[in-house]
């Protein structure tokens, strides 16, 4: 299995868990991002994700490298789905295994925050009354060096 993949197919959580399982692990943490129906008063009918696939997969791999540097002994896999997704569909799965539990929570949280910063994937909301390309979710409008850190 490619541990860092962008796919149009439904995501398989079990496959990522199996990938990170290891005799050295004392904890496996997973993050599953799903499609939410209500954002404020807006009702989503479905979402459409688009990606710059080859670059997005490279950036996912980069996040994996960062995680392994910060929390040695970690195994990590990240899959992100693109295309049309319905309410409650899984958009992203992160699985992390670490020797001890604290690092597994931290590493998993770090990975999802980094995805929202540096991976070229875009979400288009399709509401009852229109559409909207979702912008920067960090609400940090400008980056000092003109690129995500």
């Amino acid at each position: 299995m490619n541990p860092f993949a962008i796919t149009t197919l439904p995501l398989n959580v079990e496959a990522l868990i199996s990938y990170v399982s290891s005799p050295q692990a004392g904890a496996i943490n997973t993050f599953i991002g799903t499609v939410r129906e209500l954002t404020g008063e807006k009702k989503t009918i479905y979402l459409k994700y688009e990606a710059y696939v080859p670059m997005a997969e490279k950036q996912l791999k980069k996040i994996g490298t960062e995680v392994q540097e910060k929390w040695p002994g970690t195994r990590i896999a990240i899959h992100h789905r693109i295309g049309s997704l319905a309410i409650s569909d899984i958009a992203v799965v992160i699985a992390v295994s670490t020797p001890h539990r604290a690092a597994s929570f931290e590493a998993c949280r770090y990975a999802i925050e980094r995805i929202k910063e540096i991976v070229p994937i875009w979400k288009k909301e399709h509401w009852e009354d229109g559409t909207f390309w979702v912008g920067n979710q960090q609400e940090t409008i400008s980056y000092e060096k003109g690129e995500p850190k």
């Binding site: 990606a51 710059y52 958009a91 929202k116 540096i118 991976v119 070229p120 390309w133 920067n136 995500p148």
Partner: peptide, 10 residues
């Protein structure tokens, strides 16, 4: 060269 609007994955 790719022009990338602010990303919104996850």
């Amino acid at each position: 060269v790719a022009f990338l609007p602010p990303v919104s994955g996850g």
